[in-house]
Amino acid sequence: MTIEHELTCTHEPDFPVAVVHAAGRLTFATVPMLRNAGQKALTDQPEVLLIDVSALEAVDDITLTAFPMIARNGVETGTDVMLVGPGPALVEQLERLGVARQVPVHAGLAEAIAAHGRLPGPRRVELALPALPAATASARELVDQACTTWRLPHLADTAALIVTELVANAVEHAGTPIRVTVALRDRHLHLAVRDESPLPLERSGEDEEPGRGLLIVEGMASAWGCLHTAGGKVVWATLRREPKR
């Protein structure tokens, strides 16, 4: 068996639940395949990504740190990441490395879905918009409504300004249909703007001064970034629900 066939990762895309089945031997040589599969699954922005590890053997313990990395990328896209179905040996490895404290682990798919369903909601709203200047006003209204519904009035103005700059950037440089997502997480409010352009992110906004729009995002968000997808890209930003102590 060749190295590239020691691990197989199959993706079942769906919304709100996506599943990646990882089967075979996880080694230093095959861990990039797992990371890539997780990244690809996150680009669809499901509410939860379940990684089925029931047929996975971790040959090198340290490779299991790929799971917290995928979970951190999930925070960026507003997606919860959970592991399902580990055997006794894998459970011991996950606990020994502390991975189980960073990524929820469940016995099976049904249990993981039930656990996700018990999380507080509503947790996510979306809006599809055309690449027109008026899209910024619609995106601000979506954010205002979400902050009101989720009782986060203290974040409304900042979130509205951030989403304005993200949408304005997409309208100006991508020129494709846009999807705006606002997601409520345990500690953060997550904003994302998805477009269908393969071009790299351009650093400009509503103003003529190049770079000012995303500099505003950079200065006001707790974190922000860009994920490239098969059909374009997702530019995201997060705001802490409570002030940092």
Rank of each mutant, 00 (worst) to 15 (best):
R25V: 13
V171P: 07
V180L: 02
S204W: 04
A168F: 01
R245C: 13
P210E: 05
T30G: 08
M33T: 15
R194P: 01
E218P: 11
V143H: 06
L214Y: 09
L119G: 11
A223M: 04
G98L: 07
L132T: 15
G78H: 01
N169L: 03
R187M: 13
A137H: 14
V163C: 07
L189C: 10
A137W: 11
A100Y: 00
V75I: 13
T65S: 12
F15G: 14
V235S: 05
E95Q: 13
G225V: 10
T229H: 10
I70V: 14
V193W: 00
R245E: 11
H21W: 05
D80R: 12
A66F: 00
L214D: 11
H154K: 15
A159Y: 00
V31A: 07
L94G: 06
H188W: 09
L50W: 08
G175R: 03
G211M: 03
T30E: 01
H106P: 06
D60S: 13
E196N: 09
W224A: 10
R25T: 11
R101Y: 09
S197G: 06
M82V: 15
N169S: 12
R151Y: 04
L26Y: 07
I216E: 07
E218R: 12
A131R: 06
T8F: 04
I113H: 02
P68H: 00
P200I: 01
I178G: 00
V193H: 00
S204T: 15
V171D: 00
D14V: 09
L129V: 09
L90H: 15
V125N: 05
A41Y: 01
E218I: 11
S204G: 15
L90G: 12
D60I: 15
R245Q: 13
V234Q: 02
A131M: 07
H11N: 09
T10R: 14
R35M: 08
A221N: 03
V167S: 03
E218V: 09
G231H: 08
D195W: 01
A139W: 00
A160Y: 01
E208F: 08
G24K: 13
T77C: 10
D60A: 15
T8H: 09
R179A: 01
A115R: 03
C147E: 04
D157A: 07
D61I: 11
E111Q: 14
I162N: 01
P16G: 15
P200Q: 04
P32A: 05
T65L: 10
S204R: 07
A128N: 01
A137D: 14
H190T: 13
W150D: 12
G24V: 10
A221F: 02
A160Q: 06
T43L: 05
V84G: 07
E196W: 02
L50S: 12
V91Y: 02
E209W: 00
E208L: 13
P32I: 11
A168R: 02
G213W: 00
E141R: 04
M1F: 08
A221L: 00
